[in-house]
Amino acid sequence: MRVLVIEDDREHAKFINQVLSEAGHEVAIAENGADGLIQAREGEFDALVVDRMLPEKDGLKLVEEYRNGGGQTPALFLSALSDVDNRVEGLKAGADDYLAKPFAPQELAARVEALGRRQASEEPPVTKLKVADLEMDLLARKVWRAGQKIDLQPREFRLLEFLMRHAGQVVTRTMLLEKVWDYHFDPQTNVIDVHVSRLRAKIDKDFDEQLLQTVRGAGYCLQG
């Protein structure tokens, strides 16, 4: 994926560059808001990573203008302001995700990955998801593994749906808490792990191939 990083702090930009490059992305960097907007419009990027506080043009305004100008590339806000209000403000301006500084590199990589994927999978409305021999019918709310029906609680269903939609990508605990439970804080205990391991017990336990992997220090990955 080609990612444009708009960040004025060079040290930070370098770090983001390294994280994303290691994750296999091609990274371009703009150092202020005005340049960022021009590059975002001219270059063909798959994702934008935008700092909230920028010289020349504020990050919020940048994304707003970019969207008003018809720009479609998904954008992720980076900000030291982690309040709900700030996040809502950012999403309203047209960003697709919001990540508070400081963040773990895996978190950033996972979210950027998810952003690019989002755009690709937006086109046809999906009714069925499939990862290896794991199948999900979104309309009937049913799940099968190797043709065998699996009973899931509503929450487990949503958890699995999210994982399947992001199959092959690393999904962090924070992402799960945000997207599946809609909470934007980190619980001190391993609540998410427990939910994931229950889900794993249902979909993987009786099968040879383990689809739901734990990625150490990062999160989970559902992969065929």
């Binding site: 439970w181 909470y183 205990t189 391993n190 609540v191 939910h195 391991s197």
Partner: peptide, 14 residues
Amino acid sequence: LELADLYEPACEDA
């Protein structure tokens, strides 16, 4: 209810 649902497994696990 959601929080109870979120925490119950963690409690049982512990």
